[in-house]
Design a protein around this nucleic acid. Structure first.
Lengths: 251, 251
DNA sequence: CGTTAGCTTGATTTTCATCAATACTCGTGG
DNA sequence: CCACGAGTATTGATGAAAATCAAGCTAACG
């Protein structure tokens, strides 16, 4: 098992390239995710206060946003790109607990520290707030907590589905479920699904599905041989037989 | 794999023994969990409205409360006992996604149907509300959503910890983590930890940890042989070497 | 007691991880 | 433009962990 990951130094949020609200020239009304993010339910008053408080953060692929154990000072909404959340065992074994897509948020913590690692999967931009500012706005805008509750509950539902996958599915079922889930999300975001782009490495897929990269690779070639998918490029998948894929995903 | 589970008919919430608010004679102030449950943050006014709306449900061990796909009409707070939440694959493979203890709630759904199965692990009593009633109270009492958010977030954190266990831990590590977690929860609830009671069967433990009952059993005896634990009874565990157990749990 | 459900133990098989080598991709510099 | 090298992916051979198959055992209950 690769121990180097535990030693990898991740950038702290503070060291990322940053554009503040006044120079970014962006307003919430123009924001790419303003209809989907937690702030979509806020009125103009609250929104204009958020505008004063936000900072735009730009990450490059593989940049770290925060690590497990860091002070949970900030709360982020993803504007573009994708991030991964992960947890590590002391010996470096890694489990990716989820991918975070535009409109979704990161960094809502229980106590005062983050409970997982967040890293950019692709180049990404985020909208950052101080947790304390956000709490203040939340107290004055009850609809915000309601919205955060709905979004958190949705994430919890996904987490439980993923627990079924991790605990009870075999490798081919895991891969099939993964591809279908990815396709659904791409379709929902009006991104091409034919072929489908894999924005993450084999290592990321393995650590998401509780497998090794070798098993991921072997399972892809197995599906290829069986004419269920084809792989025009290493990070593009063409689904050739959707019925077969769905049959696999269902167990 | 045992297919019989998918055919098992579970009682619907409607068929459970029920005591309504007037005959139960219970008031929120006297409730065993009134300092811990979601309703702890409500003022006297809201509480007295809840009193009018609640119904006490009593379950016996192994009774079903609801199944995945049922209309999500009700929301429940556990007053006593414990329940399990689970998800099934079509062929009967089961993953237990969590145990629900007194003070915690069940049945907050995304859409209009439940996304998992809820069954009593032990005899249990619950406080039941109509989701629609609760939503009304919530709109008038913003602190309720804030409380539900905190509790849901806490459950999500547990779920992610469990994903690390399911995806990356070996059987002995899973069992050790499980025992430590159980001990912490028992200690937090002022229940005896010496020996520690296992309120669930080997099958439940297996389906919670993503193992088979045979592997659970073998791992227990392995820990016993290694003098890490002893098993005075099938459902009591005595931790003999806490250091060794914690070392295992950490990987 | 006898029966049954739940638990343990043993033998064998399967799946996936590990170890090891090879190929592909892409960027860099000769 | 091609050679080189690093990182990533694939493929192959082997091994280990856990599942499966199959008896027994134990404890609880009529």
């Amino acid at each position: 098992m690769d121990l180097s990951r535990t030693r990898t130094t991740l950038n702290s949020a503070l060291s990322c390239r940053r554009t503040d609200a006044t120079t970014s020239g962006g307003f919430c009304q123009d924001c790419a995710v303003h209809t989907r993010a937690f702030c979509a339910v806020l009125d103009d008053d609250a929104l204009s206060r958020l505008e004063q408080l936000h900072t735009i953060i730009n990450l490059e692929s593989e940049d770290g946003l925060f690590m497990e154990g860091d002070d949970a000072t900030f709360f982020f909404t993803v504007l573009s790109g994708a991030l991964r959340l992960s947890k590590l065992l002391p010996d470096g074994r890694r489990q990716i607990t989820g991918f975070v897509l535009p409109g979704e948020f990161i960094g809502l913590s229980l106590g005062d520290i983050y409970v997982d690692n967040a890293e950019a999967l692709t180049d990404a931009s985020l909208c950052r707030f101080n947790v304390s500012d956000l709490e203040r706005i939340g107290q004055e805008n009850p609809e915000m907590d309601s919205r955060l509750l709905t979004m958190t509950n949705s994430t919890l539902t996904q987490a439980r589905d993923h627990m079924l996958l991790l605990g009870r599915m075999k490798a081919p079922e895991k891969i099939a479920s993964f591809l279908i889930g990815l396709m659904d999300r791409a379709a929902a975001a009006d991104q091409p699904t034919d072929p489908l782009r894999l924005p993450m490495s084999r290592a990321d897929i393995a650590d998401y599905l509780g497998l090794t990269i070798e098993t991921v690779s072997r399972t892809f070639t197995r599906l290829k041989v069986d004419k269920v998918i084809s792989l025009p490029e290493h990070n593009r998948v063409q689904i050739e037989n959707m019925e077969a894929l769905m049959a696999l995903a269902e167990g």
